[in-house]
């Protein structure tokens, strides 16, 4: 008589879970908490400043352009994925290997959604072109329209389809660490600075 096949690890784990799990508990009915303020711009700006970003309110793309030129006067290797600002770019993203992005000093990307409660900005692979771009660049600029602000993370997730692209991220401020004696240091592995242009 042939012996029964050895169960796979998958089968063993699932069987152990089935044997040991408690009876079914319901999911909570309400998951969305917190008041929605009428003014989202003030808390969004305050939060961004608190997490080490610079916020610039810009009436139009021309204002953004002028500010970038003023803030990064002699900077080369600028990559841009905001269609209206591509003239600022001197680095082509038409590379096959993301390692080539290593030389980028400034990346200017559009943000899809901004969250007022924490200053986080959602962007997907579509806005990034290369997933590594917002992380590998020395400095990061995100451009977001005022009407793309929401109050809380709950509201953000209502508007986002996380699996629409293969990758998406909330980015909240420049890269940071406090691993040495809890001293906050801006610029760990990712961008050394973040400037957020609030359009409109």
């Amino acid at each position: 008589m042939p012996s029964a096949p050895t169960p796979t690890s998958r089968e063993r784990i699932l069987a152990a879970i089935r044997q040991n799990k408690p009876s079914l508990q319901p999911l909570p009915e309400r998951i969305d908490w917190g008041a929605v303020p009428t003014n989202l711009i003030t808390p969004f700006k305050t939060m961004l400043q608190a997490i080490g970003a610079t916020v610039v309110e810009a009436a139009d793309y021309e204002t953004v352009r002028a500010h970038v030129r003023e803030t990064f006067p002699d900077v080369a290797n600028i990559a841009v994925t905001v269609p209206e600002l591509t003239d600022l770019a001197d680095f082509s993203l038409a590379v096959a290997d993301p390692h080539d992005l290593e030389l980028i000093n400034l990346a200017i990307l559009p943000g899809a959604w901004g969250v007022a409660e924490n200053g986080a900005i959602w962007l997907t692979e579509q806005e990034m072109v290369h997933r590594a771009l917002p992380f590998i660049t020395q400095h990061l600029a995100l451009v977001i329209h005022r009407e793309r602000l929401v109050a809380t993370m709950h509201q953000a997730y209502e508007r986002i389809r996380v699996d629409k692209t293969g990758f998406g991220a909330f980015i909240a401020g420049p890269s940071k660490t406090a691993d040495i004696e809890q001293s906050l240091v801006i610029g760990a592995h990712g961008a050394r600075s973040l400037v957020v242009y609030l359009l409109g």
Binding site: M47, I51, D163, T165, F167, A169, A172, G173
Partner: peptide, 16 residues
């Protein structure tokens, strides 16, 4: 840490 959110919250769904 008392931060309002972690700096990078990355959502992976498919390999590049």
């Amino acid at each position: 840490t008392g931060q309002p959110i972690t700096t990078y919250c990355s959502h992976f769904h498919r390999a590049r």
